[in-house]
Nucleic acid binder design. Structure first.
Lengths: 140, 140
DNA sequence: ATTATATATTTGTTATGACGAATATTGTTT
DNA sequence: AAACAATATTCGTCATAACAAATATATAAT
């Protein structure tokens, strides 16, 4: 018989994750950008001018691998990223964030930050550290 | 400037939630049942023989409201639930779990339980309680 | 009674996720 | 070099999520 605390700890984290997800999602929606697209833009910015290929992106994405090809397609259509063929290895593509992509990020970032602060407002600094520690030990 | 602990606490919980999700999903997939369908079946079982309508289900579902009508459709096709019209209020439908639905639950339950225990294996009883407390304070 | 409003469900549409197959290129083995 | 395996990406398909609109019934207001 499974312990109630076991089940509840998993359920609590699952639900908290869903609440976070839906909050961030509702913000990004206004900018006509999906969470995963946002995630890709942030990864690209983080890599400065180093090019990224699809596998690099997939590895670093928060969410499960979806269809990164098509996610990038959508970002290209919005002119937030550009894609070129890798010259040394023609199987690879190289993906860069554009100035327009950086702009939209700088627009969204402070709003996400503010909301993340709101999401965590009930936790003290010590509690946040504890939560990081504990949730990292869950489900690995 | 947002604190690293704030951002990390949210990211850790988000990722832990995704890990839980993907673990449970991969189990249920083998039984050709989605998480949300499983969730509905458990809710129905929990309500014994009391009928449930769509709104009851929606309120209790862990995941965001998807399309409950169609989820129930799929469960009916598998003969795990049945649906009748409410006699006193013809806007409502009444949904019940069938014996076949109960059977499939009793098949899956122990496997889910075992995996939930595995997911939480690195946490002590005290830590689980702490995690429940902290994650419930996040994102509300 | 007629109109308006609220409730409960269903349906249509678009976008995305999951996953496997297909294609192209590169690297390795014989 | 030919055959084969490994790597990187793209494409096809189906299921589901998100959301809006439509439909049907019930309740309330005039």
């Amino acid at each position: 018989m499974i312990k109630k605390t076991t089940r509840d700890s998993i359920l609590s984290v699952l639900k908290a994750g869903l609440r976070i997800n839906s909050k961030l999602y509702s913000i990004l929606k206004k900018y006509n950008i999906s969470e995963q697209q946002f995630n890709i833009l942030r990864i690209l910015r983080g890599r400065k001018n180093k090019p990224s290929n699809l596998i690099t992106l997939q590895e670093r994405m928060v969410h499960k691998m979806s269809n990164t090809t098509r996610l990038v397609d959508k970002l290209i259509r919005k002119k937030y990223v550009r894609r070129t063929l890798c010259k040394t290895n023609r199987r690879k593509i190289e993906i860069f964030i554009t100035d327009k992509g950086l702009e939209v990020l700088s627009l969204i970032d402070p709003i996400i930050d503010k909301n993340e602060e709101l999401l965590a407002v009930n936790l003290s600094e010590e509690e946040k550290k504890q939560l990081i520690y504990l949730s990292n030990k869950l489900a690995i």
